[in-house]
Design a binder for these strands. Structure first.
Lengths: 255, 255
DNA sequence: GGAACGCATTGATTTACATCAATCCATCGG
DNA sequence: CCGATGGATTGATGTAAATCAATGCGTTCC
Protein backbone atom coordinates (compact mmCIF):
# COMPACT_ATOMS: atom_id res chain seq x y z
CA UNK A 1 0.00 0.00 0.00
CA UNK A 2 1.90 3.02 -1.17
CA UNK A 3 1.57 6.22 0.77
CA UNK A 4 1.19 9.62 -0.86
CA UNK A 5 0.87 13.22 0.29
CA UNK A 6 -2.66 14.30 0.82
CA UNK A 7 -4.90 16.63 -1.10
CA UNK A 8 -5.87 19.60 1.03
CA UNK A 9 -9.42 20.71 0.68
CA UNK A 10 -12.53 22.09 2.30
CA UNK A 11 -14.20 19.88 4.88
CA UNK A 12 -17.50 18.94 3.29
CA UNK A 13 -18.54 17.05 0.23
CA UNK A 14 -19.61 19.09 -2.69
CA UNK A 15 -19.91 18.89 -6.40
CA UNK A 16 -17.50 21.11 -8.28
CA UNK A 17 -19.53 23.22 -10.63
CA UNK A 18 -18.82 22.62 -14.27
CA UNK A 19 -17.51 26.05 -15.06
CA UNK A 20 -16.64 27.76 -18.28
CA UNK A 21 -14.31 30.34 -16.76
CA UNK A 22 -10.90 29.41 -15.39
CA UNK A 23 -11.45 31.27 -12.16
CA UNK A 24 -13.13 28.48 -10.15
CA UNK A 25 -11.31 26.92 -7.25
CA UNK A 26 -10.12 23.71 -8.72
CA UNK A 27 -9.01 21.22 -6.13
CA UNK A 28 -7.43 19.03 -8.81
CA UNK A 29 -4.97 21.81 -9.58
CA UNK A 30 -3.92 22.07 -5.96
CA UNK A 31 -4.10 18.38 -5.15
CA UNK A 32 -0.76 17.14 -3.86
CA UNK A 33 -1.63 13.51 -4.48
CA UNK A 34 -2.20 14.09 -8.18
CA UNK A 35 1.48 14.08 -9.32
CA UNK A 36 1.85 10.47 -8.18
CA UNK A 37 -1.66 9.05 -8.39
CA UNK A 38 -3.63 7.62 -11.31
CA UNK A 39 -4.68 11.22 -12.10
CA UNK A 40 -1.12 12.06 -13.05
CA UNK A 41 -1.65 10.72 -16.58
CA UNK A 42 -4.12 13.51 -17.29
CA UNK A 43 -2.19 16.58 -18.28
CA UNK A 44 -2.68 20.19 -17.16
CA UNK A 45 -4.54 21.02 -20.37
CA UNK A 46 -7.16 18.42 -19.58
CA UNK A 47 -7.47 19.00 -15.87
CA UNK A 48 -10.98 20.30 -16.23
CA UNK A 49 -12.00 16.90 -17.49
CA UNK A 50 -10.78 15.55 -14.18
CA UNK A 51 -12.51 18.23 -12.14
CA UNK A 52 -15.72 17.59 -14.01
CA UNK A 53 -15.59 13.91 -13.22
CA UNK A 54 -14.52 14.03 -9.60
CA UNK A 55 -16.60 14.66 -6.49
CA UNK A 56 -14.57 15.26 -3.39
CA UNK A 57 -15.99 13.56 -0.33
CA UNK A 58 -15.06 13.85 3.35
CA UNK A 59 -15.64 10.74 5.41
CA UNK A 60 -15.50 10.80 9.23
CA UNK A 61 -13.71 8.08 11.22
CA UNK A 62 -15.60 4.82 11.48
CA UNK A 63 -17.84 5.53 8.53
CA UNK A 64 -18.07 2.88 5.83
CA UNK A 65 -18.33 4.02 2.22
CA UNK A 66 -17.99 0.80 0.28
CA UNK A 67 -20.22 -2.06 1.29
CA UNK A 68 -19.26 -5.58 0.28
CA UNK A 69 -21.87 -6.90 -2.14
CA UNK A 70 -23.34 -3.49 -2.94
CA UNK A 71 -23.57 -2.38 -6.59
CA UNK A 72 -20.21 -1.11 -7.78
CA UNK A 73 -21.29 2.31 -9.01
CA UNK A 74 -18.22 4.38 -8.09
CA UNK A 75 -14.47 4.46 -7.95
CA UNK A 76 -12.52 6.28 -5.24
CA UNK A 77 -9.15 7.91 -5.18
CA UNK A 78 -7.92 8.35 -1.59
CA UNK A 79 -6.47 11.83 -1.15
CA UNK A 80 -6.13 12.04 2.62
CA UNK A 81 -6.33 9.77 5.64
CA UNK A 82 -6.37 5.98 6.01
CA UNK A 83 -8.97 3.50 4.78
CA UNK A 84 -9.31 -0.13 5.83
CA UNK A 85 -10.45 -2.65 3.25
CA UNK A 86 -12.02 -5.82 4.55
CA UNK A 87 -14.05 -8.93 3.96
CA UNK A 88 -16.39 -10.38 6.55
CA UNK A 89 -17.92 -13.72 7.46
CA UNK A 90 -21.54 -13.99 8.59
CA UNK A 91 -20.54 -14.77 12.19
CA UNK A 92 -18.64 -11.53 12.58
CA UNK A 93 -15.14 -12.73 11.76
CA UNK A 94 -13.38 -10.17 9.64
CA UNK A 95 -10.20 -10.01 7.64
CA UNK A 96 -8.72 -6.65 6.74
CA UNK A 97 -7.17 -7.13 3.31
CA UNK A 98 -5.34 -3.82 3.21
CA UNK A 99 -4.96 -0.30 4.47
CA UNK A 100 -5.34 2.32 1.77
CA UNK A 101 -3.57 5.63 2.13
CA UNK A 102 -3.41 8.69 -0.16
CA UNK A 103 -2.87 7.72 -3.75
CA UNK A 104 -4.76 4.47 -3.52
CA UNK A 105 -7.41 3.86 -6.10
CA UNK A 106 -10.38 1.85 -4.87
CA UNK A 107 -13.35 0.28 -6.49
CA UNK A 108 -12.02 -1.98 -9.23
CA UNK A 109 -14.68 -4.64 -9.51
CA UNK A 110 -15.05 -7.50 -11.92
CA UNK A 111 -18.67 -8.19 -11.35
CA UNK A 112 -21.33 -5.55 -10.84
CA UNK A 113 -20.84 -5.60 -7.09
CA UNK A 114 -18.05 -4.62 -4.73
CA UNK A 115 -16.05 -7.62 -3.53
CA UNK A 116 -14.95 -5.88 -0.34
CA UNK A 117 -15.92 -3.23 2.19
CA UNK A 118 -14.10 0.03 2.94
CA UNK A 119 -14.24 2.11 6.10
CA UNK A 120 -12.46 5.26 7.21
CA UNK A 121 -9.91 4.70 9.97
CA UNK A 122 -9.47 8.43 10.60
CA UNK A 123 -10.86 11.44 8.76
CA UNK A 124 -10.59 10.52 5.10
CA UNK A 125 -10.93 12.46 1.88
CA UNK A 126 -11.60 10.72 -1.39
CA UNK A 127 -12.34 11.81 -4.92
CA UNK A 128 -15.29 9.84 -6.13
CA UNK A 129 -15.79 8.99 -9.81
CA UNK A 130 -18.98 7.44 -11.09
CA UNK A 131 -18.56 4.42 -13.29
CA UNK A 132 -19.90 6.28 -16.33
CA UNK A 133 -17.54 9.19 -15.96
CA UNK A 134 -14.65 6.85 -15.37
CA UNK A 135 -15.50 5.00 -18.57
CA UNK A 136 -15.43 8.30 -20.45
CA UNK A 137 -12.04 9.17 -19.00
CA UNK A 138 -10.70 5.74 -19.90
CA UNK A 139 -11.88 6.12 -23.47
CA UNK A 140 -10.30 9.54 -23.81
CA UNK A 141 -7.07 8.88 -21.93
CA UNK A 142 -5.61 5.45 -22.80
CA UNK A 143 -2.68 6.01 -20.45
CA UNK A 144 -5.15 5.99 -17.60
CA UNK A 145 -5.80 2.34 -18.30
CA UNK A 146 -2.09 1.61 -18.26
CA UNK A 147 -1.84 3.36 -14.96
CA UNK A 148 -4.77 1.43 -13.49
CA UNK A 149 -3.13 -1.79 -14.65
CA UNK A 150 0.00 -0.71 -12.80
CA UNK A 151 -2.05 -0.01 -9.66
CA UNK A 152 -3.77 -3.38 -9.92
CA UNK A 153 -0.41 -5.10 -10.39
CA UNK A 154 0.93 -3.31 -7.32
CA UNK A 155 -2.04 -4.55 -5.33
CA UNK A 156 -1.52 -8.09 -6.63
CA UNK A 157 2.07 -8.14 -5.46
CA UNK A 158 1.04 -6.79 -2.06
CA UNK A 159 -1.72 -9.40 -1.87
CA UNK A 160 0.73 -12.21 -2.59
CA UNK A 161 3.05 -10.98 0.14
CA UNK A 162 0.12 -10.87 2.52
CA UNK A 163 -0.93 -14.42 1.60
CA UNK A 164 2.57 -15.62 2.46
CA UNK A 165 2.30 -13.77 5.78
CA UNK A 166 -1.18 -15.06 6.61
CA UNK A 167 -0.49 -18.61 5.54
CA UNK A 168 2.94 -19.32 6.78
CA UNK A 169 4.43 -16.68 9.08
CA UNK A 170 4.48 -16.78 12.90
CA UNK A 171 2.95 -14.03 15.01
CA UNK A 172 6.27 -12.29 15.63
CA UNK A 173 7.21 -12.50 11.93
CA UNK A 174 3.84 -11.01 11.03
CA UNK A 175 4.05 -8.04 13.37
CA UNK A 176 7.64 -7.39 12.33
CA UNK A 177 6.61 -7.48 8.66
CA UNK A 178 3.76 -5.09 9.37
CA UNK A 179 5.94 -2.55 11.16
CA UNK A 180 8.56 -2.65 8.43
CA UNK A 181 5.93 -2.20 5.74
CA UNK A 182 4.53 0.82 7.56
CA UNK A 183 8.04 2.22 7.89
CA UNK A 184 8.72 1.80 4.17
CA UNK A 185 5.37 3.31 3.28
CA UNK A 186 6.12 6.35 5.42
CA UNK A 187 9.44 6.81 3.64
CA UNK A 188 7.96 7.01 0.18
CA UNK A 189 8.14 10.29 -1.78
CA UNK A 190 5.97 12.94 -0.23
CA UNK A 191 6.54 11.93 3.35
CA UNK A 192 8.72 13.99 5.60
CA UNK A 193 11.40 11.98 7.30
CA UNK A 194 10.35 11.20 10.85
CA UNK A 195 13.20 9.12 12.18
CA UNK A 196 11.50 5.76 12.43
CA UNK A 197 8.44 7.09 14.22
CA UNK A 198 5.31 5.53 12.81
CA UNK A 199 1.88 7.02 12.97
CA UNK A 200 -0.51 4.11 13.16
CA UNK A 201 -4.09 5.44 13.27
CA UNK A 202 -5.57 1.96 13.26
CA UNK A 203 -6.40 0.13 16.53
CA UNK A 204 -4.75 -3.06 17.79
CA UNK A 205 -7.93 -4.79 16.72
CA UNK A 206 -7.50 -3.50 13.17
CA UNK A 207 -3.87 -4.63 13.11
CA UNK A 208 -4.98 -8.04 14.42
CA UNK A 209 -7.64 -8.31 11.71
CA UNK A 210 -5.01 -7.48 9.08
CA UNK A 211 -2.42 -9.96 10.36
CA UNK A 212 -4.81 -12.84 11.06
CA UNK A 213 -4.16 -12.61 14.81
CA UNK A 214 -6.06 -11.54 17.94
CA UNK A 215 -5.79 -8.24 19.81
CA UNK A 216 -4.00 -9.93 22.71
CA UNK A 217 -1.43 -11.59 20.45
CA UNK A 218 -0.63 -8.28 18.74
CA UNK A 219 -0.29 -6.56 22.13
CA UNK A 220 1.91 -9.32 23.59
CA UNK A 221 4.12 -9.30 20.51
CA UNK A 222 4.57 -5.52 20.62
CA UNK A 223 5.40 -5.76 24.32
CA UNK A 224 7.99 -8.47 23.64
CA UNK A 225 9.53 -6.36 20.87
CA UNK A 226 9.74 -3.43 23.27
CA UNK A 227 11.46 -5.66 25.84
CA UNK A 228 13.91 -6.78 23.15
CA UNK A 229 14.81 -3.19 22.29
CA UNK A 230 13.32 -3.35 18.80
CA UNK A 231 10.66 -0.67 19.22
CA UNK A 232 9.35 1.98 21.54
CA UNK A 233 5.62 2.23 22.15
CA UNK A 234 4.69 5.85 22.69
CA UNK A 235 1.57 7.76 23.55
CA UNK A 236 -1.49 7.52 21.40
CA UNK A 237 -0.72 5.46 18.34
CA UNK A 238 2.95 6.24 18.02
CA UNK A 239 5.37 3.41 17.63
CA UNK A 240 9.03 4.15 17.04
CA UNK A 241 11.25 1.64 15.36
CA UNK A 242 14.52 1.44 17.29
CA UNK A 243 16.16 -1.50 15.52
CA UNK A 244 14.94 -2.07 12.00
CA UNK A 245 17.72 -4.60 11.56
CA UNK A 246 16.31 -6.85 14.27
CA UNK A 247 12.84 -6.52 12.78
CA UNK A 248 14.28 -7.38 9.36
CA UNK A 249 15.71 -10.60 10.70
CA UNK A 250 12.33 -11.52 12.20
CA UNK A 251 10.29 -10.57 9.15
CA UNK A 252 12.53 -12.44 6.72
CA UNK A 253 11.38 -15.78 8.05
CA UNK A 254 14.37 -17.93 9.02
CA UNK A 255 12.69 -19.77 11.87
CA UNK B 1 -8.77 -19.03 -11.08
CA UNK B 2 -10.92 -19.47 -14.12
CA UNK B 3 -10.59 -22.62 -16.11
CA UNK B 4 -10.60 -22.77 -19.87
CA UNK B 5 -10.36 -25.41 -22.59
CA UNK B 6 -6.82 -26.12 -23.66
CA UNK B 7 -4.90 -25.33 -26.80
CA UNK B 8 -3.86 -28.47 -28.59
CA UNK B 9 -0.44 -28.44 -30.08
CA UNK B 10 2.76 -30.27 -30.88
CA UNK B 11 4.83 -31.38 -27.94
CA UNK B 12 7.96 -29.26 -28.16
CA UNK B 13 8.69 -25.57 -28.00
CA UNK B 14 9.31 -23.86 -31.26
CA UNK B 15 9.08 -20.49 -32.88
CA UNK B 16 6.32 -20.16 -35.41
CA UNK B 17 7.86 -18.92 -38.64
CA UNK B 18 6.65 -15.54 -39.77
CA UNK B 19 5.02 -16.69 -42.96
CA UNK B 20 3.51 -14.77 -45.79
CA UNK B 21 1.24 -17.54 -47.03
CA UNK B 22 -1.82 -18.60 -45.12
CA UNK B 23 -0.96 -22.25 -45.30
CA UNK B 24 1.25 -22.49 -42.21
CA UNK B 25 0.01 -24.40 -39.23
CA UNK B 26 -1.07 -21.64 -36.93
CA UNK B 27 -1.73 -22.82 -33.42
CA UNK B 28 -3.41 -19.52 -32.54
CA UNK B 29 -6.09 -20.27 -35.09
CA UNK B 30 -6.83 -23.64 -33.56
CA UNK B 31 -6.32 -22.64 -29.94
CA UNK B 32 -9.44 -23.40 -27.90
CA UNK B 33 -8.38 -21.12 -25.06
CA UNK B 34 -8.22 -18.10 -27.32
CA UNK B 35 -11.97 -17.30 -27.47
CA UNK B 36 -12.01 -16.67 -23.74
CA UNK B 37 -8.47 -15.61 -22.91
CA UNK B 38 -6.70 -12.28 -23.18
CA UNK B 39 -5.97 -13.15 -26.82
CA UNK B 40 -9.66 -12.92 -27.65
CA UNK B 41 -9.39 -9.16 -28.12
CA UNK B 42 -7.17 -9.66 -31.15
CA UNK B 43 -9.38 -10.33 -34.15
CA UNK B 44 -9.00 -12.96 -36.85
CA UNK B 45 -7.54 -10.39 -39.26
CA UNK B 46 -4.68 -9.72 -36.86
CA UNK B 47 -4.07 -13.24 -35.70
CA UNK B 48 -0.70 -13.33 -37.39
CA UNK B 49 0.42 -10.58 -35.06
CA UNK B 50 -0.39 -12.95 -32.23
CA UNK B 51 1.37 -15.90 -33.84
CA UNK B 52 4.40 -13.74 -34.47
CA UNK B 53 4.59 -12.76 -30.82
CA UNK B 54 3.86 -16.09 -29.17
CA UNK B 55 6.21 -19.00 -28.52
CA UNK B 56 4.46 -22.15 -27.41
CA UNK B 57 6.28 -24.00 -24.69
CA UNK B 58 5.72 -27.44 -23.17
CA UNK B 59 6.67 -27.79 -19.52
CA UNK B 60 6.92 -31.18 -17.82
CA UNK B 61 5.51 -31.81 -14.33
CA UNK B 62 7.61 -30.42 -11.50
CA UNK B 63 9.51 -28.01 -13.71
CA UNK B 64 9.61 -24.38 -12.62
CA UNK B 65 9.45 -21.71 -15.30
CA UNK B 66 9.11 -18.50 -13.32
CA UNK B 67 11.61 -17.94 -10.53
CA UNK B 68 10.77 -15.47 -7.78
CA UNK B 69 13.20 -12.57 -7.97
CA UNK B 70 14.38 -13.35 -11.49
CA UNK B 71 14.18 -10.63 -14.18
CA UNK B 72 10.65 -10.36 -15.52
CA UNK B 73 11.36 -10.80 -19.21
CA UNK B 74 8.30 -12.74 -20.33
CA UNK B 75 4.58 -13.13 -19.96
CA UNK B 76 2.81 -16.46 -20.12
CA UNK B 77 -0.64 -17.49 -21.20
CA UNK B 78 -1.52 -20.93 -19.84
CA UNK B 79 -3.15 -23.03 -22.58
CA UNK B 80 -3.12 -26.47 -21.00
CA UNK B 81 -2.49 -28.09 -17.63
CA UNK B 82 -2.17 -26.68 -14.11
CA UNK B 83 0.44 -24.28 -12.72
CA UNK B 84 1.12 -23.51 -9.08
CA UNK B 85 2.14 -19.99 -8.14
CA UNK B 86 4.02 -19.57 -4.90
CA UNK B 87 6.17 -17.49 -2.62
CA UNK B 88 8.84 -18.98 -0.39
CA UNK B 89 10.65 -18.14 2.84
CA UNK B 90 14.37 -18.80 3.22
CA UNK B 91 13.80 -21.66 5.67
CA UNK B 92 11.75 -23.63 3.18
CA UNK B 93 8.27 -22.55 4.20
CA UNK B 94 6.14 -21.97 1.15
CA UNK B 95 2.78 -20.49 0.40
CA UNK B 96 1.02 -21.33 -2.83
CA UNK B 97 -0.84 -18.17 -3.82
CA UNK B 98 -2.85 -19.71 -6.60
CA UNK B 99 -3.34 -22.48 -9.12
CA UNK B 100 -3.39 -21.30 -12.73
CA UNK B 101 -5.32 -23.23 -15.30
CA UNK B 102 -5.88 -22.63 -19.02
CA UNK B 103 -6.74 -19.03 -19.76
CA UNK B 104 -4.62 -17.63 -16.96
CA UNK B 105 -2.20 -14.91 -17.87
CA UNK B 106 1.00 -14.88 -15.82
CA UNK B 107 3.88 -12.53 -15.48
CA UNK B 108 2.41 -9.16 -14.60
CA UNK B 109 5.19 -7.51 -12.63
CA UNK B 110 5.48 -4.02 -11.27
CA UNK B 111 9.19 -4.00 -10.75
CA UNK B 112 11.74 -5.54 -13.11
CA UNK B 113 11.62 -8.85 -11.29
CA UNK B 114 9.01 -11.54 -10.80
CA UNK B 115 7.33 -11.36 -7.39
CA UNK B 116 6.44 -15.05 -7.36
CA UNK B 117 7.49 -18.44 -8.67
CA UNK B 118 5.58 -20.72 -11.01
CA UNK B 119 5.90 -24.48 -11.42
CA UNK B 120 4.05 -27.02 -13.53
CA UNK B 121 1.81 -29.36 -11.54
CA UNK B 122 1.21 -31.66 -14.49
CA UNK B 123 2.23 -31.34 -18.15
CA UNK B 124 1.64 -27.70 -18.98
CA UNK B 125 1.55 -25.73 -22.19
CA UNK B 126 2.01 -22.01 -22.20
CA UNK B 127 2.33 -19.33 -24.84
CA UNK B 128 5.27 -17.17 -23.96
CA UNK B 129 5.45 -13.51 -24.95
CA UNK B 130 8.57 -11.45 -24.48
CA UNK B 131 8.13 -8.13 -22.76
CA UNK B 132 9.04 -6.22 -25.92
CA UNK B 133 6.56 -8.06 -28.10
CA UNK B 134 3.90 -7.66 -25.45
CA UNK B 135 4.52 -3.92 -25.36
CA UNK B 136 4.07 -3.79 -29.13
CA UNK B 137 0.79 -5.68 -28.90
CA UNK B 138 -0.43 -3.38 -26.14
CA UNK B 139 0.36 -0.32 -28.22
CA UNK B 140 -1.44 -1.68 -31.25
CA UNK B 141 -4.43 -3.25 -29.48
CA UNK B 142 -5.75 -1.00 -26.71
CA UNK B 143 -8.46 -3.49 -25.84
CA UNK B 144 -5.72 -5.85 -24.77
CA UNK B 145 -4.92 -3.49 -21.92
CA UNK B 146 -8.57 -3.43 -20.88
CA UNK B 147 -8.59 -7.19 -20.92
CA UNK B 148 -5.42 -7.40 -18.82
CA UNK B 149 -6.96 -4.99 -16.33
CA UNK B 150 -9.95 -7.32 -16.14
CA UNK B 151 -7.65 -10.29 -15.53
CA UNK B 152 -5.78 -8.42 -12.83
CA UNK B 153 -9.05 -7.40 -11.20
CA UNK B 154 -10.18 -11.03 -11.24
CA UNK B 155 -6.94 -12.03 -9.55
CA UNK B 156 -7.38 -9.28 -6.96
CA UNK B 157 -10.83 -10.52 -6.02
CA UNK B 158 -9.54 -14.09 -5.76
CA UNK B 159 -6.64 -12.88 -3.64
CA UNK B 160 -8.96 -11.08 -1.24
CA UNK B 161 -11.08 -14.20 -0.85
CA UNK B 162 -7.92 -16.18 -0.15
CA UNK B 163 -6.77 -13.65 2.45
CA UNK B 164 -10.07 -14.07 4.27
CA UNK B 165 -9.61 -17.84 4.13
CA UNK B 166 -5.98 -17.77 5.30
CA UNK B 167 -6.55 -15.20 8.01
CA UNK B 168 -9.81 -16.18 9.56
CA UNK B 169 -11.20 -19.54 8.43
CA UNK B 170 -10.87 -22.86 10.26
CA UNK B 171 -9.31 -25.90 8.64
CA UNK B 172 -12.65 -27.46 7.71
CA UNK B 173 -13.93 -24.18 6.30
CA UNK B 174 -10.76 -23.86 4.23
CA UNK B 175 -10.91 -27.32 2.71
CA UNK B 176 -14.63 -26.94 2.00
CA UNK B 177 -13.98 -23.59 0.30
CA UNK B 178 -11.20 -25.14 -1.77
CA UNK B 179 -13.33 -28.04 -2.97
CA UNK B 180 -16.21 -25.73 -3.88
CA UNK B 181 -13.88 -23.41 -5.77
CA UNK B 182 -12.51 -26.33 -7.74
CA UNK B 183 -16.05 -27.48 -8.48
CA UNK B 184 -17.07 -24.03 -9.74
CA UNK B 185 -13.91 -23.76 -11.82
CA UNK B 186 -14.65 -27.09 -13.46
CA UNK B 187 -18.14 -25.92 -14.33
CA UNK B 188 -17.02 -22.85 -16.25
CA UNK B 189 -17.62 -22.69 -20.01
CA UNK B 190 -15.49 -25.17 -21.86
CA UNK B 191 -15.66 -27.89 -19.28
CA UNK B 192 -17.73 -30.95 -19.84
CA UNK B 193 -20.10 -31.68 -17.03
CA UNK B 194 -18.61 -34.38 -14.82
CA UNK B 195 -21.17 -34.77 -12.06
CA UNK B 196 -19.23 -33.32 -9.16
CA UNK B 197 -16.11 -35.36 -9.84
CA UNK B 198 -13.04 -33.19 -9.42
CA UNK B 199 -9.72 -33.84 -11.01
CA UNK B 200 -7.13 -32.50 -8.60
CA UNK B 201 -3.66 -32.99 -10.08
CA UNK B 202 -1.98 -31.27 -7.15
CA UNK B 203 -0.71 -33.26 -4.14
CA UNK B 204 -2.04 -33.02 -0.58
CA UNK B 205 1.12 -31.07 0.15
CA UNK B 206 0.26 -28.55 -2.56
CA UNK B 207 -3.29 -28.21 -1.24
CA UNK B 208 -1.85 -27.72 2.26
CA UNK B 209 0.54 -25.02 1.02
CA UNK B 210 -2.37 -23.25 -0.66
CA UNK B 211 -4.66 -23.39 2.39
CA UNK B 212 -2.06 -22.52 5.01
CA UNK B 213 -2.33 -25.99 6.58
CA UNK B 214 -0.20 -29.14 6.86
CA UNK B 215 -0.50 -32.34 4.81
CA UNK B 216 -1.87 -34.22 7.82
CA UNK B 217 -4.54 -31.64 8.51
CA UNK B 218 -5.72 -31.70 4.89
CA UNK B 219 -5.80 -35.49 4.96
CA UNK B 220 -7.69 -35.64 8.28
CA UNK B 221 -10.19 -33.08 7.06
CA UNK B 222 -10.86 -34.94 3.84
CA UNK B 223 -11.29 -38.16 5.82
CA UNK B 224 -13.74 -36.44 8.15
CA UNK B 225 -15.69 -35.07 5.17
CA UNK B 226 -15.85 -38.57 3.72
CA UNK B 227 -17.18 -39.90 7.02
CA UNK B 228 -19.82 -37.15 7.03
CA UNK B 229 -21.01 -38.11 3.55
CA UNK B 230 -19.87 -34.86 1.96
CA UNK B 231 -17.35 -36.31 -0.49
CA UNK B 232 -15.97 -39.52 -1.89
CA UNK B 233 -12.23 -39.95 -2.22
CA UNK B 234 -11.47 -42.07 -5.26
CA UNK B 235 -8.41 -43.53 -6.87
CA UNK B 236 -5.57 -41.36 -7.96
CA UNK B 237 -6.51 -37.74 -7.41
CA UNK B 238 -10.23 -38.02 -7.92
CA UNK B 239 -12.52 -36.48 -5.34
CA UNK B 240 -16.25 -36.54 -5.90
CA UNK B 241 -18.47 -34.01 -4.23
CA UNK B 242 -21.50 -35.81 -2.85
CA UNK B 243 -23.13 -33.01 -0.89
CA UNK B 244 -22.23 -29.56 -2.13
CA UNK B 245 -24.90 -28.15 0.20
CA UNK B 246 -23.07 -29.40 3.28
CA UNK B 247 -19.80 -28.04 1.96
CA UNK B 248 -21.51 -24.71 1.30
CA UNK B 249 -22.61 -24.48 4.90
CA UNK B 250 -19.06 -25.17 6.07
CA UNK B 251 -17.38 -22.80 3.63
CA UNK B 252 -19.75 -19.92 4.39
CA UNK B 253 -18.27 -19.47 7.85
CA UNK B 254 -20.96 -19.53 10.48
CA UNK B 255 -18.90 -21.08 13.23
C1' DG C 1 -16.25 15.88 38.47
C1' DG C 2 -17.52 11.29 37.96
C1' DA C 3 -19.52 7.51 35.40
C1' DA C 4 -19.33 5.15 31.13
C1' DC C 5 -16.95 3.52 27.33
C1' DG C 6 -13.30 2.22 24.18
C1' DC C 7 -8.89 0.55 23.94
C1' DA C 8 -4.69 -1.70 25.52
C1' DT C 9 -2.03 -4.72 28.47
C1' DT C 10 -1.19 -8.70 31.16
C1' DG C 11 -2.32 -13.27 33.30
C1' DA C 12 -4.32 -17.96 33.30
C1' DT C 13 -6.24 -21.61 30.76
C1' DT C 14 -7.76 -24.03 26.65
C1' DT C 15 -7.51 -25.65 22.01
C1' DA C 16 -6.95 -26.14 17.00
C1' DC C 17 -3.55 -27.38 14.51
C1' DA C 18 1.44 -28.66 14.07
C1' DT C 19 4.81 -31.98 14.84
C1' DC C 20 6.55 -36.46 15.20
C1' DA C 21 5.88 -41.24 14.14
C1' DA C 22 4.26 -45.48 12.02
C1' DT C 23 2.08 -47.77 8.35
C1' DC C 24 0.09 -48.58 3.83
C1' DC C 25 -0.35 -48.19 -1.19
C1' DA C 26 0.89 -47.26 -5.95
C1' DT C 27 4.42 -46.42 -9.14
C1' DC C 28 8.95 -46.61 -10.97
C1' DG C 29 13.50 -48.27 -12.01
C1' DG C 30 17.06 -51.70 -11.98
C1' DC D 1 10.08 -59.29 -9.80
C1' DC D 2 11.63 -56.71 -6.02
C1' DG D 3 13.44 -52.80 -3.69
C1' DA D 4 13.11 -47.85 -3.55
C1' DT D 5 10.49 -43.85 -3.57
C1' DG D 6 6.71 -40.65 -3.36
C1' DG D 7 2.42 -39.79 -1.53
C1' DA D 8 -1.41 -40.53 1.69
C1' DT D 9 -3.57 -41.89 6.02
C1' DT D 10 -3.89 -42.45 10.85
C1' DG D 11 -2.23 -42.18 15.76
C1' DA D 12 0.06 -39.91 19.70
C1' DT D 13 1.95 -35.84 21.59
C1' DG D 14 3.29 -30.92 21.82
C1' DT D 15 2.65 -26.01 21.26
C1' DA D 16 1.66 -21.37 19.36
C1' DA D 17 -1.96 -18.79 19.50
C1' DA D 18 -6.82 -18.28 20.92
C1' DT D 19 -9.92 -17.69 24.52
C1' DC D 20 -11.37 -16.07 28.83
C1' DA D 21 -10.59 -12.89 32.52
C1' DA D 22 -8.97 -9.00 35.13
C1' DT D 23 -7.08 -4.52 35.33
C1' DG D 24 -5.56 0.08 33.92
C1' DC D 25 -5.68 4.29 31.18
C1' DG D 26 -7.48 8.01 28.40
C1' DT D 27 -11.41 10.15 26.45
C1' DT D 28 -16.16 11.45 26.27
C1' DC D 29 -20.49 12.72 28.00
C1' DC D 30 -23.82 13.95 31.46
Amino acid sequence: MSDMPSCQFESRPRRIVIGSSGVQTDFCTTCSVRPTSVCSVIGPDDISRLSDAAVETIIPPGRGFIEEGAPATDFFNVTSGTVKLFKALPDGRRQITGFASPGHFLGLAVSDNYAFGAEAVDTVRVCRFSRDKMADLLDDFPKLERRLLEEASNELVAAQNQMLLLGRKTARERVASFLLDQMHASQLPGHESNGGRLHLPMTRGDIADYLGLTIETVSRTLSWMRSQGMIEVGKGYAITIVSAAKLDVLAAGNT
